[in-house]
Amino acid sequence: MLNFFHNSYIFFLIEKLINFINSIFFVLLLIALSFALIFSPPDYLQGESVRIMYVHVPAAWISLTSFSCIAIVSILNFIFKIKNLKLITKSIAPIGLMFTCIAIVTGSIWGQPTWGTFWAWDARITSMVIMALFYLIIIVIHKFFDEDDKANKISSIVAVIGLINIPIIKYSVEWWSTLHQPASIKITGSSTIHSSMLTPLLLMFFVLILYCALIFLMKYKTEIIKIKKKNLKRYDQ
């Protein structure tokens, strides 16, 4: 069991996973895109514009999940002080920021045909922008602080503060009167989306999750190499 947490085993696993995801990714992407753009029906009210949902919703889910992961990992890092956890938060943050921006931009594009405007300072959109700012702060801290420990400590505090924003994003459509529609898919309770639309949505989500895993693994591998490179300097002296 301990072998599982060993750095060399993790590195070996990363290599295998990157190769595996690379080998299946494009086939799955083609299947998901076919469902999203061809096989899924138009909405009775929104027409073909509903297809934007297949990139907007998975991007929003990923951005929320990534931030929750960063916050949980930061809390665990405070308690257990495991070295690898720092690398995880550092690797996830850019992915989270990217998908938050994608969710905001595609949401804005979707807003024009459905609401008649690209932008509104409504509760859901504003709270998403705030989350993007939290991601940005975490990335900037890691980039500009020379001391790794100090950077990790400050970014962890920022992540934990940012965690307060997650339930605000989730329930903003229920707490305030907003332009954004309430959730159609519920983990508890019945969903209000037809299976002909749910299938492409879950497929696109799965493909984008695979993409995130791929980027995360490459970033994580880069961080390990950076550490090993620093260690090499000992032999030079």
């Binding site: 895109l33 753009l37 138009p42 027409g47 073909e48 514009s49 297809r51 934007i52 990139v55 907007h56 991007a59 994608i102 931009v105 595609t106 594009i109 979707w110 024009q112 045909p113």
Partner: peptide, 16 residues
């Protein structure tokens, strides 16, 4: 053209 929504749908997918 996606019944007039093409510009919105395609731009979302292309940007992503």
């Amino acid at each position: 053209t996606m019944n007039g929504y093409g510009i919105f749908v395609w731009s979302s997918f292309v940007i992503t």
